[in-house]
């Protein structure tokens, strides 16, 4: 193989002159982190709420949650992203569509990708929450109600604290997924980490260094997430095993 390795490329100034190629990578990393973390927070809120709704004894509420899950879990992430970014502004009333289109392009891309990732991941979180709640013995709910707690109180104090502990490991893998999935945002032009990697190839013809750097950065993010989540798991572990 006749390839010229050149790791010093990262310290070279970009043609625009304001930063190095490493600067591009770091700004991509920043966008990836901001996008993934903001989408994750929304996904937890939406998924948590919908997951609870799926288990409540009310046909309408659980029906709404079921429809949400079926729509967002059964269509490709990429298609969802294109719909949020390209189609939605056209479907909205003209004034709103125009308002979106007059935002700066980065913000348009970022918001579309954030909503898309949040709702896609939220549907998966919803299913985790539902299975966590359902894995608890029916007896726990009965015990809460029998003490005179209302159904919302029983969820708040009895069911959810245990359900969350049970679903922490699968939630960790959803958390890891959202960083990896955020790379689809490069398809609508958002300059996150993967897109910066590709841009670096276009400018320098050093694909190996570029994609190795992207890979390492994703691995570092996910290693940190895993360590943090293990710490959380250890912290909330119930003495005596409990469940």
């Amino acid at each position: 193989m006749n390839y010229h390795w050149n790791w010093a490329i990262f310290l070279t100034e970009t043609p625009s002159g304001s930063t190095t190629y490493m600067g591009w990578m770091l700004s991509g990393l920043e966008v990836t982190l901001a996008l993934s973390l903001s989408a994750w927070i929304i996904a937890l809120l939406v998924g948590g709420l919908m997951g609870v709704l799926r288990t409540v004894p009310n046909r309408w509420l659980s029906g709404i949650a079921t429809v949400y899950v079926e729509i967002f879990r059964n269509t490709p992430l990429l298609v969802q992203l294109f719909i949020w970014y390209f189609v939605l502004p056209e479907l909205l009333p003209t004034a709103m569509g125009d308002a979106i289109k007059s935002l700066n392009p980065f913000l348009q891309q970022f918001l579309a990708a954030m909503v898309c990732l949040a709702l896609f991941t939220g549907a998966r979180v919803c299913e985790q929450v539902r299975s966590g709640i359902n894995s608890l013995a029916v007896g726990q709910k009965s015990a809460g109600l029998a003490l005179g707690l209302t159904l919302p109180q029983t969820y708040r104090y009895v069911i959810l604290p245990m359900a969350i502990r049970i679903i922490l490991p699968p939630l960790t893998s959803e958390f890891l997924n959202i960083f990896k999935n955020s790379a689809v945002a490069s398809t609508i032009g958002l300059l996150e980490l993967a897109a910066q990697g590709r841009q670096l190839v276009d400018y320098t013809a050093q694909p190996y260094e570029s994609f190795i750097a992207v890979t390492v950065m994703f691995m570092v993010i996910n290693t940190v997430v895993m360590i943090l989540m293990h710490k959380v798991e250890a912290r909330v572990r119930v003495p005596g095993g409990g469940h």
């Binding site: 015990a143 029998a146 003490l147 005179g148």
Partner: peptide
């Protein structure tokens, strides 16, 4: 109001059902 009624009717279950956390 079932919650109010249950508050004064104690119940003990076969599987204890203490809150493990």
């Amino acid at each position: 109001n079932l919650a109010k009624l249950r508050a004064h009717v104690g119940m003990v279950f076969q599987n204890f059902e203490l809150f493990p956390h």
